[in-house]
C-alpha cells in the first residue's frame, strides 16, 4: 500500500517536477489573485455609481461571469480564440479567465463591504470637503475591506485551489506536473504528494480564516 501511494523512491525521482509545479502554482496565484482583486475593486467602484447606464451593464457582466463555469470559460479561451486568430497560450488564458471569473466574485464581496459602511460616514467626510473619490478611498474602502476580510480570504482560498484548472490547458502548475510525474513513473505517489502540498499550503489560510470569522462573530455580539 505504502509502496503504491507513498513510494519514497518515486517521491525522490518526481520531486524536481512536482517542485517546479508548486512554484508555478504560487506564481499563478500571485498573478491571478491580485488581478481578480483589482478587477473586483473596479467593478465594485463602478457599482457605487448610481447611474443606471453604468449599473445595468455591470450587473449583467457580473451575473454572466458568476454563472459561467470557469473551466468552460478557460477551455473556450484556450481552444476558441485561436480560431479568431488569437493564440494566447495557457498561462495568459488562465489569467484572463480568472480575471473575468474571480473578478466578478471579488467584485460582489467588495460591493457588499462598501454597502456595509453607513451612509453617514460618507456624509461626514463630504461635509468637511472631501471629494466623492477621497471619501471612498480614505473612509469607505478601509472599513469595507475590514468588514469583508473573511469573505475576501475565503474567496482567495477558492482561487488558489482553482489554479489547478490550469492543468487542463497545459499550464505546468502543481497538478499538471504531478500528473506528468505520475505518467512517467506509472505510480500515483506524485498525485498524493501534490495533494499534501496543496493541504500544507492552504491549511494555514484556512486556520487564519476561522480566526477571522470567530473574531467577526465576537465583534458582532
Amino acid at each position: 500500500m505504502i509502496q503504491t501511494f507513498f513510494n519514497i523512491e518515486i517521491i525522490a525521482a518526481a520531486w524536481p517536477i512536482v517542485l517546479s509545479g508548486l512554484l508555478n502554482t504560487i506564481l499563478l496565484s500571485l498573478i491571478v489573485v491580485p488581478l481578480g482583486l483589482f478587477g473586483g475593486l473596479i467593478l465594485a467602484l463602478l457599482a457605487s455609481v448610481k447611474n443606471p447606464l453604468v449599473r445595468w451593464p455591470l450587473m449583467a457582466w457580473v451575473d454572466f461571469f458568476r454563472a459561467f463555469p470557469p473551466l468552460v470559460l478557460l477551455i473556450l479561451l484556450f481552444a476558441g480564440l485561436p480560431f479568431a486568430g488569437l493564440e494566447l497560450g495557457g498561462f495568459a488564458c488562465v489569467a484572463i479567465a480568472f480575471f473575468l471569473n474571480t473578478g466578478a466574485y471579488y467584485g460582489e464581496i467588495f460591493r457588499a463591504g462598501i454597502d456595509s459602511v453607513p451612509a453617514g460616514q460618507v456624509e461626514a467626510g463630504r461635509s468637511t470637503g472631501l471629494s466623492r473619490l477621497q471619501a471612498m478611498g480614505y473612509i469607505v474602502l478601509p472599513q469595507a475591506v475590514r468588514n469583508v476580510l473573511p469573505d475576501l480570504l475565503s474567496n482567495t482560498l477558492e482561487v488558489v485551489k482553482l489554479t489547478s484548472l490550469g492543468s487542463v490547458v497545459a499550464v505546468p502548475e502543481l497538478l499538471y506536473q504531478a500528473r506528468q510525474a505520475q505518467s512517467l513513473t506509472y505510480n500515483p505517489t506524485p498525485i498524493v504528494v501534490a495533494a499534501i502540498i496543496y493541504f500544507l499550503m492552504l491549511w494555514p489560510l484556512v486556520r487564519l480564516l476561522s480566526r477571522l470569522e470567530n473574531r467577526a462573530l465576537a465583534g458582532r455580539r
Partner: peptide, 25 residues
C-alpha cells in the same frame, strides 16, 4: 456639520478624524 450619530471614522484615531480633511482638503 455635526451629526446626531457623530459619524466618526471608526478606523482612525481621534486625531486622525480631525486631521483627514486638513491634510486632504
Amino acid at each position: 456639520m455635526v451629526f446626531q450619530s457623530f459619524n466618526l471614522y471608526p478606523h482612525m484615531t481621534a486625531l486622525g478624524n480631525v486631521t483627514l480633511a486638513l491634510r486632504k482638503v
